[in-house]
Amino acid sequence: MKGRPVELNDAAVAGAGRNIRLRLANSKFRIYIPVLSASVALLILGQILSPGFASASNIGNLLATAVVLAIASFGQTLVVISGQEGIDLSIGAMMSMGALIGVQVSDQSSLGLWGAVLLLIGTGALVGLIHAVCIQFLRIPPLVMTLGMATVVDGFALAYTKGLPSGTAPKLLTAIGIGHVGPIRTLLLFGIAMVVIGEFVLRRTRYGRNLYLAGSNRMAAALSGIHVNVVVFVTYVIAGIAGTLGGLVMLGFVGTAQLGMGDGYTLLSIAAVVIGGTALAGGEGTFLGSALGAVVLTILTSVLLAVGMQEGVRELIQGAILLLVLAIYSRAPKLRQ
């Protein structure tokens, strides 16, 4: 229950780094096959139910829409990899706050967009820091901590804007959100860049390697000289910043800021991370997987929307599919092993 015993548990700590690299290479493409085939099958299904669904332009739109969810899954992925039941239920609230503060500051004050960006980095880092302190030192479970923080963040955004945020998205953000570079949506390029940079950080930097080690076995990581606290702090701070800045991108996509506009992304981001092959027990996972998970979920939602299905049935189907996916390929090994 507490953690799926990963191969690393038994591995000698010294050999662990090599072990990880091996596993990544081995699983590089294998783990993406289910998500990719599911995406293709859903596109075909969509095309049958609503002709034009699988046209190039609509696929571009679907991918661009998926980028917003992928951004929400970015911080979530890191937090989940960090292990010890790491999960972030404040992502949606952080994104809402990012959009609300972003629009208010960049449009209504002299700070402008870049001032807003700095301010949001500060706010995101602060919230991440509080998370990390409470989780690492007060031993509050991440689920409860981030959940409690979500209500505070939402409450703060409400108090800050007095419920009536003002301003429209800065041009640069709308250019990212709905603009094109040549025939391709800018948002899509943005998403690809994000995944590439994220994967580089995970695989090629010391932080990334330490994160995987700390995620699979905190004790072993600590014994091998990794500052586990530092890794966890950095992770939650990055997640916080990713949340508020993700709110800015969402603002560009939507155009205006509304209270609670990001709330729906919290649970979806967890689903995207898991569908993308990241184990909730920590210690494994990739950004690319989460991004693909976001793509599957976005296509699924759009297919269900395209056939104009009643909300209850839509929810029922989403739940049933998630359960099925989990039951088939997210199982922990048997206890007797």
Binding site: P34, A41, L45, V307, G308, M309, I317, A320, V325
Partner: peptide
């Protein structure tokens, strides 16, 4: 294992299809 996973994906997608169609009928 690879086969199992692709099968899983296929199974889930076909379930989605069946459910979608069933849902349409229901609606």
């Amino acid at each position: 294992k690879r086969m199992k996973r692709s099968m899983a994906a296929l199974a889930s997608v076909s379930l989605a299809g069946v459910l979608v169609l069933a849902g349409c009928g229901g609606i």
